[in-house]
């Protein structure tokens, strides 16, 4: 192989030229170890988030208020599982197996989006999750479609195609409740009160406090900063809340100007970072429950994997 003859400085220069020229980096290409490590961390965290995110929504499948809403919720949760699989397969191209990623999750060495450590207390929460949590995720993922690592970027394109139904179904739930009885309206307002701030926290720390932003931006693993994406989400979402009569739970929220399309931009309060770090560090309302459930499901499924392995070894079924 030619690359063994090249020194690291030359390889790095080639790599950076590619990044500069918007050429995607592919699994067999040389990449700096720090780039690979950052991708391993970011993509696996993303994959775990999709899968752990199935739990708060799964909590309401049996109690969905109609057959229509139950079918929709099932389809959405199935999508989340699928998104996890797209992302695990992108992450595996970095030389780490899915088993290893799941082991790191179970050992607490890998994280997932903190927002899924909040409980879903009633049906309105399913609306709030689809609208706000998926809405925030979409804002982030649209930007990541342009990520420099080919397999990650392609997974994002696929995921974004599927996500917009998720957000719409959530918003529709909220809208219907706001058109309903006083009690339903109170439930919807209560849900946005509880989910608004966790949704904003999904974008991560301020850029100035983010350990990972610098290299990630330089190497185009991330294309826009945490704060920029958060602003985009707020600007899009506040008018949607107002349209259906929901109040955004931020007393300092007010229009600060307009963007280049003439749409309003907003001034708002800062996030409660103490709460953010508490939940990130394992002290949110459901951290323990989410992880325990994942471990339990994984262990209870072990016999299926054992049977399938035994079947493969006995039948040599790859060739069969």
């Amino acid at each position: 192989m030619k690359e063994t003859l090249l020194d690291d400085a030359t390889l790095l220069a080639d790599f950076e030229t590619k990044i500069e020229a918007e050429t995607k980096i592919e699994p067999r290409d040389w990449m700096p170890e720090a780039y690979r490590k950052h991708l391993i961390r970011q993509i696996s965290q993303h994959a775990h988030s999709e899968v752990i995110g199935m739990q708060p929504e799964g909590n309401w499948i049996t109690r969905a208020p109609s057959l229509r809403s139950k079918k929709i919720l099932l389809a959405k949760i199935q999508d989340e599982g699928g998104h996890g699989l797209y992302l695990y397969s992108a992450a595996e191209t970095l030389g780490v197996s899915r088993d290893q990623y799941i082991q790191w999750l179970h050992e607490g060495k890998a994280k997932y989006a903190s927002v899924f450590n909040y409980p879903t207390l009633n049906w309105a929460d399913i609306g709030a999750i689809g609208w706000l949590v998926d809405g925030a995720a979409i804002t982030n993922q649209v930007s990541l479609q342009r990520a420099s690592y080919g397999p990650y970027s392609r997974a994002m394109v696929r995921i974004c195609k599927e996500e917009s139904f998720h957000q719409r179904q959530g918003y529709e739930i909220m809208w219907k409740m706001m058109e309903g009885t006083k009690d339903q309206q109170r439930m919807a307002q209560d849900a946005i009160n509880r989910w608004w701030w966790p949704a904003l926290m999904m974008f991560g720390p301020h850029d100035s406090d983010s350990a990972h932003t610098g290299n990630a931006m330089k190497w185009k693993i991330k294309r826009e900063t945490n704060d920029r994406l958060r602003e985009k989400f707020i600007n899009k979402t506040v008018p949607q809340a107002e349209l259906i009569g929901l109040k955004v739970p931020d007393s300092n929220l007010k229009v600060s100007g307009t963007d280049s399309f003439g749409e309003p931009t907003y001034e708002h309060s800062d996030i409660d970072w103490e709460e953010f770090w508490q939940v990130v560090n394992g002290n949110g309302p459901c951290n323990q429950q989410r992880l325990e459930h994942h471990i339990k499901a994984h262990e209870e499924g072990a016999w299926v994997r054992e049977c399938a392995s035994a079947f493969l070894n006995n039948s040599n079924s790859l060739k069969g």
């Binding site: 699994p27 397969s89 493969l312």
Partner: peptide, 16 residues
Amino acid sequence: MSTTINTSNSEQGPLW
């Protein structure tokens, strides 16, 4: 596509 790891013996089955 993953070609850098050996997944054939893992308990998740080979990669396709």
